[in-house]
Simulated scan of single mutants.
Amino acid sequence: MNDTINDLHSKIENLKNEISFKNGLISILSHDSRSMFGNFLWLTAALEQETITKEDFFKMLPQVKSDAQKNLQTVQDSTAWLKTQYGDFKIKPEKIAVIGLFQHLEEKYAGGLKEKNLSFRFQGDTSAFIETDRILIEFVLDKILNNAVKYSMPGQDIYLNVITEEAQVILSVTDSGTGMDEKFLANIYTYDNPVFQGTAGETGVGLSLKIVKNFISLMQGSIEIISSADKGTTVSLFLPKMNE
Protein backbone atom coordinates (compact mmCIF):
# COMPACT_ATOMS: atom_id res chain seq x y z
CA MET A 1 0.00 0.00 0.00
CA ASN A 2 2.76 2.41 0.97
CA ASP A 3 4.65 1.59 -2.24
CA THR A 4 1.54 2.41 -4.28
CA ILE A 5 1.10 5.74 -2.48
CA ASN A 6 4.80 6.62 -2.90
CA ASP A 7 4.62 5.72 -6.58
CA LEU A 8 1.54 7.93 -6.98
CA HIS A 9 3.28 10.84 -5.21
CA SER A 10 6.29 10.39 -7.48
CA LYS A 11 4.11 10.48 -10.60
CA ILE A 12 2.29 13.59 -9.36
CA GLU A 13 5.62 15.33 -8.65
CA ASN A 14 6.94 14.41 -12.09
CA LEU A 15 3.76 15.74 -13.68
CA LYS A 16 4.07 19.01 -11.74
CA ASN A 17 7.68 19.39 -12.89
CA GLU A 18 6.68 18.67 -16.48
CA ILE A 19 3.89 21.25 -16.41
CA SER A 20 6.24 23.82 -14.81
CA PHE A 21 8.85 23.14 -17.49
CA LYS A 22 6.34 23.55 -20.33
CA ASN A 23 4.88 26.74 -18.85
CA GLY A 24 8.36 28.19 -18.39
CA LEU A 25 9.30 27.26 -21.94
CA ILE A 26 6.22 29.00 -23.35
CA SER A 27 6.95 32.05 -21.19
CA ILE A 28 10.54 32.31 -22.44
CA LEU A 29 9.55 31.89 -26.08
CA SER A 30 6.78 34.48 -25.92
CA HIS A 31 8.85 37.00 -23.93
CA ASP A 32 11.93 36.74 -26.14
CA SER A 33 9.93 36.89 -29.37
CA ARG A 34 7.99 39.97 -28.25
CA SER A 35 11.17 41.66 -27.07
CA MET A 36 13.21 40.96 -30.20
CA PHE A 37 10.53 41.79 -32.76
CA GLY A 38 9.35 44.78 -30.74
CA ASN A 39 12.84 46.28 -30.65
CA PHE A 40 13.37 45.58 -34.35
CA LEU A 41 10.05 47.18 -35.33
CA TRP A 42 10.76 50.20 -33.15
CA LEU A 43 14.20 50.61 -34.69
CA THR A 44 13.03 50.37 -38.30
CA ALA A 45 10.07 52.69 -37.62
CA ALA A 46 12.39 55.24 -36.01
CA LEU A 47 14.63 55.14 -39.09
CA GLU A 48 11.67 55.55 -41.45
CA GLN A 49 10.32 58.50 -39.43
CA GLU A 50 13.85 59.92 -39.18
CA THR A 51 13.69 60.15 -35.40
CA ILE A 52 17.12 58.52 -35.32
CA THR A 53 20.01 58.99 -37.70
CA LYS A 54 21.39 56.27 -39.96
CA GLU A 55 24.58 56.40 -37.90
CA ASP A 56 22.68 55.63 -34.69
CA PHE A 57 20.70 52.93 -36.51
CA PHE A 58 23.86 51.09 -37.53
CA LYS A 59 25.31 51.49 -34.04
CA MET A 60 22.33 49.57 -32.66
CA LEU A 61 22.45 46.73 -35.17
CA PRO A 62 24.99 44.61 -33.17
CA GLN A 63 22.50 44.49 -30.27
CA VAL A 64 19.69 43.51 -32.64
CA LYS A 65 21.93 40.76 -34.04
CA SER A 66 22.75 39.52 -30.52
CA ASP A 67 19.05 39.42 -29.59
CA ALA A 68 18.24 37.52 -32.80
CA GLN A 69 20.99 34.96 -32.15
CA LYS A 70 19.74 34.41 -28.58
CA ASN A 71 16.17 34.01 -29.80
CA LEU A 72 17.22 31.58 -32.53
CA GLN A 73 19.11 29.46 -29.98
CA THR A 74 16.01 29.34 -27.78
CA VAL A 75 13.88 28.17 -30.70
CA GLN A 76 16.44 25.52 -31.69
CA ASP A 77 16.69 24.18 -28.12
CA SER A 78 12.92 24.16 -27.80
CA THR A 79 12.57 22.28 -31.09
CA ALA A 80 15.06 19.65 -29.89
CA TRP A 81 12.99 19.14 -26.74
CA LEU A 82 9.67 19.03 -28.62
CA LYS A 83 10.97 16.18 -30.79
CA THR A 84 11.20 14.04 -27.64
CA GLN A 85 7.63 14.82 -26.59
CA TYR A 86 5.55 14.28 -29.71
CA GLY A 87 5.32 11.90 -32.62
CA ASP A 88 7.17 8.59 -32.71
CA PHE A 89 10.35 9.61 -30.88
CA LYS A 90 11.95 6.73 -29.00
CA ILE A 91 15.25 6.39 -27.21
CA LYS A 92 17.63 4.46 -29.45
CA PRO A 93 20.46 3.12 -27.27
CA GLU A 94 23.74 2.31 -29.01
CA LYS A 95 27.29 1.57 -27.95
CA ILE A 96 29.19 4.86 -27.94
CA ALA A 97 32.88 5.40 -27.25
CA VAL A 98 33.28 8.37 -24.93
CA ILE A 99 36.59 9.35 -26.57
CA GLY A 100 34.62 9.63 -29.82
CA LEU A 101 32.21 12.09 -28.19
CA PHE A 102 35.19 14.13 -27.00
CA GLN A 103 36.70 14.22 -30.50
CA HIS A 104 33.36 15.26 -31.97
CA LEU A 105 33.11 18.18 -29.52
CA GLU A 106 36.76 19.12 -30.00
CA GLU A 107 36.22 19.40 -33.74
CA LYS A 108 32.88 21.22 -33.47
CA TYR A 109 34.24 23.81 -31.04
CA ALA A 110 37.68 24.25 -32.62
CA GLY A 111 36.86 27.77 -33.82
CA GLY A 112 35.32 28.95 -30.56
CA LEU A 113 38.15 27.48 -28.49
CA LYS A 114 40.76 29.14 -30.70
CA GLU A 115 38.94 32.47 -30.61
CA LYS A 116 39.10 32.51 -26.82
CA ASN A 117 42.51 30.78 -26.63
CA LEU A 118 41.01 27.90 -24.63
CA SER A 119 42.22 24.29 -24.44
CA PHE A 120 39.82 21.34 -24.32
CA ARG A 121 41.43 18.26 -22.76
CA PHE A 122 40.44 14.64 -22.07
CA GLN A 123 41.13 13.01 -18.71
CA GLY A 124 40.35 9.55 -17.40
CA ASP A 125 39.26 6.28 -18.98
CA THR A 126 39.96 6.43 -22.72
CA SER A 127 38.37 3.00 -23.19
CA ALA A 128 35.02 3.94 -21.65
CA PHE A 129 31.79 3.17 -23.48
CA ILE A 130 28.23 4.16 -22.72
CA GLU A 131 25.01 2.73 -24.10
CA THR A 132 22.54 5.53 -24.73
CA ASP A 133 20.86 7.65 -27.38
CA ARG A 134 23.50 9.41 -29.49
CA ILE A 135 21.28 12.37 -30.39
CA LEU A 136 20.46 13.10 -26.75
CA ILE A 137 23.98 12.67 -25.34
CA GLU A 138 25.52 14.81 -28.08
CA PHE A 139 22.96 17.54 -27.40
CA VAL A 140 23.61 17.37 -23.65
CA LEU A 141 27.41 17.50 -23.92
CA ASP A 142 27.19 20.24 -26.56
CA LYS A 143 25.19 22.50 -24.25
CA ILE A 144 27.44 21.83 -21.26
CA LEU A 145 30.61 22.54 -23.25
CA ASN A 146 28.99 25.62 -24.78
CA ASN A 147 28.45 27.02 -21.28
CA ALA A 148 32.01 26.11 -20.25
CA VAL A 149 33.39 28.00 -23.25
CA LYS A 150 31.03 30.91 -22.68
CA TYR A 151 32.06 31.44 -19.04
CA SER A 152 35.80 30.67 -19.32
CA MET A 153 38.46 33.34 -19.40
CA PRO A 154 40.96 33.43 -22.29
CA GLY A 155 43.88 31.04 -21.81
CA GLN A 156 42.07 28.63 -19.48
CA ASP A 157 41.60 24.86 -19.80
CA ILE A 158 38.35 22.90 -20.03
CA TYR A 159 38.35 19.18 -19.22
CA LEU A 160 36.14 16.23 -20.06
CA ASN A 161 36.86 13.77 -17.27
CA VAL A 162 35.64 10.18 -17.52
CA ILE A 163 35.35 7.71 -14.64
CA THR A 164 34.08 4.16 -15.07
CA GLU A 165 32.49 2.58 -12.00
CA GLU A 166 30.83 -0.79 -11.48
CA ALA A 167 27.33 0.32 -12.43
CA GLN A 168 27.82 3.70 -14.09
CA VAL A 169 30.02 5.98 -16.14
CA ILE A 170 30.57 9.53 -14.92
CA LEU A 171 31.24 12.25 -17.51
CA SER A 172 32.31 15.59 -16.05
CA VAL A 173 32.96 18.86 -17.86
CA THR A 174 35.09 21.17 -15.72
CA ASP A 175 36.08 24.78 -16.34
CA SER A 176 37.87 27.41 -14.26
CA GLY A 177 35.67 30.28 -15.39
CA THR A 178 33.36 32.74 -13.70
CA GLY A 179 31.25 30.13 -11.89
CA MET A 180 28.27 31.17 -9.81
CA ASP A 181 27.23 31.76 -6.21
CA GLU A 182 25.37 29.08 -4.27
CA LYS A 183 22.18 31.19 -4.22
CA PHE A 184 22.10 31.20 -8.03
CA LEU A 185 23.06 27.53 -8.26
CA ALA A 186 20.05 26.56 -6.14
CA ASN A 187 17.72 27.98 -8.82
CA ILE A 188 19.61 26.75 -11.87
CA TYR A 189 16.73 24.55 -13.08
CA THR A 190 13.96 27.03 -12.31
CA TYR A 191 12.86 30.10 -14.24
CA ASP A 192 13.93 32.45 -11.45
CA ASN A 193 17.66 32.43 -12.11
CA PRO A 194 19.21 35.53 -13.70
CA VAL A 195 20.69 35.59 -17.19
CA PHE A 196 24.49 35.60 -16.96
CA GLN A 197 26.76 37.20 -19.52
CA GLY A 198 29.70 35.27 -20.93
CA THR A 199 33.27 36.51 -20.71
CA ALA A 200 33.10 37.73 -24.33
CA GLY A 201 29.63 39.28 -23.99
CA GLU A 202 27.70 36.10 -24.87
CA THR A 203 24.17 35.91 -23.48
CA GLY A 204 21.53 33.24 -23.05
CA VAL A 205 18.26 32.60 -21.28
CA GLY A 206 19.41 29.61 -19.24
CA LEU A 207 17.04 27.29 -21.09
CA SER A 208 19.65 24.77 -22.24
CA LEU A 209 20.38 23.33 -18.76
CA LYS A 210 16.67 22.81 -18.13
CA ILE A 211 16.42 20.78 -21.34
CA VAL A 212 19.68 18.99 -20.49
CA LYS A 213 18.18 17.81 -17.19
CA ASN A 214 15.08 16.58 -19.02
CA PHE A 215 17.20 14.68 -21.57
CA ILE A 216 19.37 13.11 -18.85
CA SER A 217 16.19 11.83 -17.21
CA LEU A 218 15.14 10.28 -20.54
CA MET A 219 18.52 8.50 -20.62
CA GLN A 220 17.91 7.08 -17.11
CA GLY A 221 20.77 9.13 -15.70
CA SER A 222 21.26 12.08 -13.36
CA ILE A 223 23.15 15.38 -13.34
CA GLU A 224 25.10 17.25 -10.67
CA ILE A 225 26.45 20.81 -10.89
CA ILE A 226 29.13 22.10 -8.53
CA SER A 227 30.13 25.74 -8.93
CA SER A 228 31.80 28.58 -7.04
CA ALA A 229 31.98 32.22 -8.03
CA ASP A 230 35.25 33.05 -9.80
CA LYS A 231 36.48 29.46 -9.37
CA GLY A 232 34.64 27.61 -12.10
CA THR A 233 32.03 24.93 -12.62
CA THR A 234 31.89 21.15 -12.88
CA VAL A 235 28.88 19.52 -14.52
CA SER A 236 28.76 15.74 -13.98
CA LEU A 237 26.56 13.26 -15.79
CA PHE A 238 25.90 9.88 -14.16
CA LEU A 239 24.93 7.38 -16.85
CA PRO A 240 24.19 3.66 -16.59
CA LYS A 241 27.17 1.53 -17.62
CA MET A 242 26.87 -0.33 -20.91
CA ASN A 243 25.72 -3.92 -20.51
CA GLU A 244 28.51 -6.36 -21.28
Rank of each mutant, 00 (worst) to 15 (best):
M1S: 14
N2A: 11
T4G: 04
N6P: 00
E13F: 06
N14C: 08
K16A: 05
E18W: 10
G24Y: 09
G24E: 08
G24Q: 10
L25M: 13
I26Y: 09
I26K: 11
S27C: 02
I28Q: 12
S33V: 09
M36G: 04
L41D: 06
L43E: 03
L43P: 03
E48H: 07
Q49C: 09
Q49L: 14
T53I: 05
F57L: 00
K59I: 00
V64Q: 15
Q69D: 10
L72F: 08
Q73G: 12
T74R: 09
T74H: 09
V75R: 11
W81P: 05
L82H: 01
Q85T: 03
Q85I: 01
Y86V: 14
G87V: 09
G87F: 08
F89A: 07
I91T: 09
I91S: 00
I91R: 10
V98R: 03
L101C: 06
Q103A: 09
H104P: 00
H104F: 13
L105T: 08
K108F: 13
A110Y: 02
G111C: 06
L113F: 05
E115D: 15
L118E: 05
S119W: 00
F122P: 02
F122S: 04
Q123K: 11
S127N: 13
I130M: 04
I130E: 04
E131L: 06
E131F: 05
T132K: 09
I135K: 02
E138S: 00
E138D: 04
V140E: 00
D142S: 13
K143C: 06
K143R: 12
I144L: 14
L145N: 03
N146H: 06
A148N: 03
S152H: 09
N161G: 11
T164H: 06
A167I: 05
A167V: 07
Q168L: 11
V169H: 05
I170T: 14
T174D: 01
S176E: 14
S176R: 14
G177F: 07
G177D: 14
T178D: 06
G179Q: 12
E182V: 05
E182Y: 08
K183V: 11
K183W: 15
K183L: 15
F184S: 15
A186E: 13
I188K: 08
I188V: 15
Y191A: 12
D192K: 15
D192Q: 15
D192L: 15
N193P: 02
V195N: 12
F196M: 07
F196A: 12
T199E: 14
T203Q: 08
V205R: 05
L207N: 07
S208Q: 13
I211P: 06
I211G: 07
K213G: 04
I216C: 12
S217K: 15
S217Y: 11
I223G: 10
I223W: 03
S227W: 04
A229K: 13
T234L: 03
T234C: 10
V235H: 01
P240A: 07
